[in-house]
Write a protein that binds this DNA or RNA. Structure first.
Lengths: 206, 206
DNA sequence: CCTATTTTGTGAATGTTTTCACAAGGAGAC
DNA sequence: GTCTCCTTGTGAAAACATTCACAAAATAGG
């Protein structure tokens, strides 16, 4: 399969969002132009993005909402559920845990870890916060696909090394640090400080 | 001034992170290559990024850490502090409020708003959660530069319209929705679902 | 002072992503 | 069936971003 750019994948996620919304409101059909307007891009971009994976539209009509929903879900790998573990039961971890949209999209948090004895053992939903030492065993036992790292920056690389060693291939990192992972592991960073600084730059240079 | 790409600005933020770390450890000088390795990029990229703003290095030697720190802070507009307001006092809002790195980088949260009567009036640090209705007045009164939106998706566009109308020029959005803002307003999105879906795509297509 | 070594700054080359523009497919009216 | 609208799918062009490659500057060691 051809190499698909990260921007294209991001936009597919966005299209999915609008399609779901539209589907809920019973809209049957949508044009590349409508999708584009909602996503702040152009109709040509939408069509090009989709064209990497096939031709899902009907000329003169647009795209069938349920059909395109199904196709994009399939492309992104969302027709199955994904088993997620959360490392770090602090404020951010807790906010992520109760973030309903994860579940709605098929990302199920199956394990939570922390080092703090105060937190270990606490009930989170139908889970209990597990101690750090049980991480490797639980990652394998629960067949975790994706790990979310929500620990302080100093601890993040250590956690990631262990997680990678335990066979996990995808990591979402919230710690403000650039992690090293082998090329076989996918890593995404959510760095709120970088975003704020981008805004500061934008205001400052005007 | 020439148009600088978003990726360049993001990388500057990253360089800043490493420089701060290096500065704390008393390192005096750093080469583009060292900076590149830590940031997962190339030395040419580092030099090109910096060259948009001036020439800060010494040939044969590299960059002075304190000097480059000062320069990048100046470029990004971080030599002043920024006044931030938080709309939405839920789980995410609360996690962001206690996120120490914001303050450390000069982003000071000066106001928090919510619609929920249970939350309004609560003490958050040295602030009180203000009711929604006081938002416009407080944004102006506190001279807020940047607003962080941490409300449910359905409420986000309404909040943003009011915030923009009150004169705020920069918004960081955590709601999983694409907001419409006039071109004079800078908007960044942090969408955790998009990141997770990107990871799902990566695992799925391997 | 001269040579060897290091590392910057930057045009030019290459690679990637977005936009353009239009032929071709499909639906509906009559 | 033919004509008129629409809107897709896609090569080609344009815009944008990264990498290459090397002259120029600075230092260190004799």
């Amino acid at each position: 399969m051809k190499k698909i750019s990260e921007s294209t994948v991001r936009r597919l996620s966005l299209y999915l969002l609008f399609l779901q919304e539209g589907g809920d409101r019973g809209i049957e059909t949508i044009s590349s132009d409508e999708l584009a307007q909602r996503g702040g891009t152009t109709s040509a971009q939408v069509r090009k993005d989709l064209s990497f994976f096939g031709s899902f539209g009907k000329r003169g009509l647009g795209y069938s909402v349920p059909e395109l929903l199904r196709q994009i879900r399939e492309i992104l790998g969302l027709s199955r559920t994904w088993r997620v573990a959360l490392v770090g039961a602090g404020k951010i971890g807790s906010a992520l845990f109760s973030y309903r949209d994860f579940q709605r999209r098929g990302f199920l948090i199956r394990a939570v870890f922390d080092t703090d004895p105060e937190k270990v053992g606490a009930s989170w939903g139908d889970l209990r916060v597990l101690p750090d030492e049980e991480m490797e065993a639980a990652l394998r036992g629960e067949e975790i696909d994706i790990v979310i790292v929500a620990v302080p920056a100093e601890a993040a690389q250590g956690v990631v090394d262990r997680v990678v060693h335990a066979g996990v291939r995808a990591i979402l990192n919230f710690a403000p640090i650039r992690l090293r992972v082998p090329p076989s592991v996918s890593l995404r960073n959510v760095d709120m400080t970088v975003e704020l600084e981008g805004l500061a730059y934008a205001i400052h240079n005007r």
